Simulated assay, not measured.
Amino acid sequence: MIEKKNYYFVFKRVFDILFSIFGLVITAPVILMFGIFIKLETPGPVFFIQERVGLNGKNFNVLKLRSMGIDAEKNGAQWAEKNDPRVTKIGAFIRKTRIDELPQFINVIKGDMSLVGPRPERPIFTEQFNREIPGFIDRLAVKPGLTGWAQVNGGYEISPKDKLEYDRYYIKNLSITMDIIIILKTVKVCVTGNGAR
């Protein structure tokens, strides 16, 4: 099914590049401003780089504005929770509005990600969830996205199992129209802050 959509993936890649370049230029002042706020609130780097699993299981480094303290994972990898105490005050705001994700336009331009697709998980959690939920790696059949069907329908509060079902639905129904719907829904999510964690 995916092989028959080559035209879609060509269009999607061109759109990803053009939209991300435009988006990066437009949001650069916002990234800079919150980068300053992050430095003023806590010591450490402005950006947070973390390994994620991408298309066909290939790992890449995702780029985000740092929303937690530098010792957030001193006890090992942890999945973020609602009202996570590791999140800083500025971090809570940029996570709620998804501003922390804006640097990922760079990941999209590089080709690691697409604007729309399943949100990429960390290798350790991908392995764990695939053991607990056989087929979880089915999500890796397409590029991960800056936003996705699961995010606009359930945000970060949904379980990995439900996330898989939403992502499978997206992969089964790939289309330009669906991508546009997800992007428009994402704007609404960013404005309302629904699903933040």
Rank of each mutant, 00 (worst) to 15 (best):
R119E: 13
G111Q: 10
Q104K: 12
S114V: 01
E121K: 05
R98W: 02
G117R: 09
N107Q: 13
P103L: 09
R98L: 01
F125G: 11
S114F: 03
R122W: 15
I109R: 04
E127V: 12
I99T: 01
I99V: 09
F125E: 03
V108S: 08
L102R: 02
I124D: 15
T126D: 09
R119T: 07
E101I: 06
G117T: 14
P120A: 01
D112W: 01
R122S: 09
P123R: 14
P120W: 08
I99L: 03
G111M: 06
R98P: 07
R119Q: 08
I106Q: 06
E127S: 14
E101G: 04
E121I: 11
R119Y: 02
D112H: 15
L102I: 08
I106E: 06
R119C: 11
L115S: 10
D100H: 07
P118A: 04
D112E: 15
E121D: 03
I109L: 04
Q128E: 14
V108M: 11
Q128T: 11
V108C: 14
I106L: 15
N107E: 12
L102G: 00
F125I: 08
G111P: 11
R122N: 12
M113T: 07
E127M: 10
I106H: 09
M113R: 07
Q128F: 10
F125T: 02
F125V: 05
F129N: 07
F129L: 13
E101H: 08
F129I: 10
E101W: 03
R119H: 01
V116D: 02
V116C: 13
T126F: 00
Q104C: 08
T126Q: 11
P123M: 13
R119K: 12
L115P: 05
F125C: 14
G111A: 09
R98S: 15
E121Y: 05
I124F: 14
I99P: 04
L115F: 12
E127D: 14
V108G: 04
D100N: 15
M113P: 06
T126H: 06
S114A: 11
